[in-house]
């Protein structure tokens, strides 16, 4: 791309940014009309959790979260369909190995804490899952070829656990006459915690598996060597 064109694009993008800034400025300085926040905070005692963000994620907008988990799953399926994972890195040096030995259990422990605390303070399935995923990334960097994940079959169960439990609970509630993902007030807390636990495991496993970057190593189905595999070898 030549210089003049990138300059022109730069000018156009700057003008667009100025327009956006102006829109945001008049939006923020205008009187705020009715907002969802009022409704969300009003209904909080009915939601089964006492932290508004968790209530939005797992109760008011549970459909949204269910579909986000489906997006995660779809992205991982895309990565797996591209072929087997490249070989892992070499084994870690002593310093990295010791660090991994300390950090990974701490990350898992903190993930469990975040999952529990999400009911009444900042935390929840996505943060806990991200921590589990980062524990997997550290393990992979430290030379574990599967990033600490179990066998391929177990991985498949783990990554569908989030969507699976979510949908099963939704269908069960619908069958009991509450409506899809409409929690009864008495059991809402435990249903949300159950969904969040499954979602945490699924998010963590999905992120770690995505970092591995291909179908799990090990018991892969027999495949004929394709040109791309030759190139990597």
């Amino acid at each position: 791309m030549n210089r003049d064109l990138s300059l022109l694009i730069g000018i156009l993008v700057s003008l667009f940014a100025v327009l956006l800034l102006w829109i945001v400025y008049i939006t923020l300085s205008a009187e705020t009309g009715p907002r969802l926040a009022t409704l969300a905070l009003e209904q909080l005692p009915e939601s089964g959790v006492s932290h508004p963000v968790t209530a939005v994620l797992l109760n008011y907008r549970a459909y949204d979260t269910l579909l986000e988990l489906a997006v995660l799953l779809a992205a991982l399926l895309g990565i797996w369909s591209l072929g087997p994972a490249p070989a892992g890195f070499q084994l870690a040096g002593p310093a990295l190995a010791v660090m991994a030995r300390w950090i990974v259990p701490l990350a898992i422990l903190t993930g469990g804490y975040l999952l529990w605390v999400g009911g009444h303070a900042p935390g929840g399935a996505f943060q806990a899952g991200a921590l589990l995923g980062s524990a997997g990334v550290i393990l992979r960097l430290a030379g574990h070829p599967r990033a600490g994940l179990p066998s391929e079959e177990a991985q498949r169960w783990l990554v569908v656990a989030g969507v699976g439990v979510f949908v099963l609970i939704g269908l069960l509630l619908a069958a009991l006459g509450y409506g899809f993902l409409t929690y009864p007030k008495a059991g809402a807390k435990w249903l949300i915690l159950l969904i969040e636990t499954a979602a945490t495991l699924a998010i963590g496993a999905t992120l770690a598996a995505a970092y591995v970057g291909g179908r799990p190593l090990g018991a892969a189905p027999p495949s004929t060597p394709t040109p791309t595999e030759d190139a990597r070898a």
Binding site: A40, L41, V53, F126
Partner: peptide, 19 residues
């Protein structure tokens, strides 16, 4: 207190963006 709805959207958005 801040509006929890945009916060929740950002939270899921980050994970989806990463994947």
């Amino acid at each position: 207190p801040p509006d929890p709805v945009p916060h929740a959207l950002v939270l899921t958005g980050i994970v989806v963006a990463v994947s």
